[in-house]
Computed example of a mutant assay.
Amino acid sequence: MIPSPLPTSGTVISEAETCPASFCGVRGYLSNARMPGCDLSAASLRGADLKWANLAECNLRVADFESADLFHTTFDGSVMDHGRFVGANMFGANMNEVSAKEANFTNAYMKDIAMEEGNFQGALFWETFMQRAVAIDSDFSEALFHNATLTGGSLEGARFDRAEITHSLLNGTHLSNTRFSGADLADSRFTNARLDNTDFTGAMNVPEHLRRLIEKKAGSTP
């Protein structure tokens, strides 16, 4: 039997088609591939070149994208729970309305990423670079951010309930109507962050500079 060919640059895979089994270990060149609705659950795509690829509405549960090039890749509407994106280049990627519960984004480069209305509960953002990320109305409850950079981002309406946000930078980030209920904020920086209607109820280890900002916003200090 002749094996199924691997998808290549510009490949189009029809919606809801399961990708060939031989694809589940490819490191190849898949830039601009079109694979909406495909099933790549548990696939190994370590180091794959997926620049500008379309993986919208895909099943990516437990898929491994470690060190993959995901520059401007589209994941909108995909299920990425427990996915692995360690060290991936995700500059300008689109991850709107995804489910990425307990996914691992350690050391990922996520500058200018769009991740609105997504579910990132319990996800890991260890030393992740997310400058100017747009994550409006996303859910990061119980996620872990350590040494993460979220400066200049738009996180309005996002939820960080019981999240750990330690040694991280949120300077100049828009946090209007954002919720940090019960979050651990140890040694994180919020300099010049916009805090209109931001909820810090029950937050722990609130840095002194942030405490002053909160009090000033509440009118407790001149």
Rank of each mutant, 00 (worst) to 15 (best):
A203N: 04
A135M: 06
E116T: 11
L213S: 12
W126F: 15
T128W: 00
A158H: 07
N192Q: 08
L210V: 06
F180M: 07
S154H: 11
T201W: 08
S154K: 11
R132L: 05
L195H: 05
G118V: 01
S188V: 03
A186Q: 11
F160W: 05
A148N: 02
R189S: 10
A163L: 09
S168N: 04
V206N: 00
S181K: 15
F190G: 00
Q131Y: 14
T198R: 04
R194Y: 10
T198C: 04
F190T: 01
A114P: 00
L185D: 00
A135N: 06
M130H: 00
H167R: 12
N171G: 00
S141L: 06
G122Q: 06
F120T: 01
L150I: 14
A183M: 10
S176C: 09
S138Y: 04
I165A: 03
D137K: 13
R212T: 14
I165F: 07
T173E: 09
A193R: 05
L155E: 07
A133D: 06
G153H: 07
E117W: 13
L210A: 04
E164N: 12
A193V: 03
T201C: 07
F145W: 02
Q131R: 14
V134A: 13
L185W: 03
V206E: 01
S176M: 09
A114C: 04
N147W: 13
T201Y: 08
S138H: 06
A158T: 10
L169N: 07
T151F: 12
T191N: 11
R211D: 13
L170S: 02
R211Q: 14
A186N: 05
G118F: 00
I136R: 08
D196K: 13
T178I: 01
L213H: 09
S138A: 13
A143L: 02
G157E: 05
T128H: 01
E142Y: 15
A158M: 06
L175S: 04
T149A: 14
F145D: 02
P207M: 07
A133R: 02
T151M: 11
F200Y: 08
D196Q: 10
S176P: 07
R194K: 14
T128P: 04
H146W: 12
G122I: 12
R194E: 12
N205R: 11
I165T: 01
T178K: 06
R212Y: 07
T151A: 15
H167C: 09
R179E: 10
A163S: 11
G118W: 01
S176L: 01
G122T: 08
V134Y: 08
M115R: 05
T166A: 10
A133Y: 02
L195V: 03
G202N: 05
N192D: 09
M204G: 00
W126R: 11
S176Y: 09
N192E: 08
E164Y: 12
G153Q: 08
P207K: 08
D139T: 08
E116M: 02
T198K: 02
L210F: 00
F129W: 09
M204K: 14
A183G: 04
T178P: 05
T128L: 06
D161W: 11
T198E: 02
R179T: 12
N197W: 15
A163H: 06
F129L: 09
L213T: 09
T166R: 15
E156I: 10
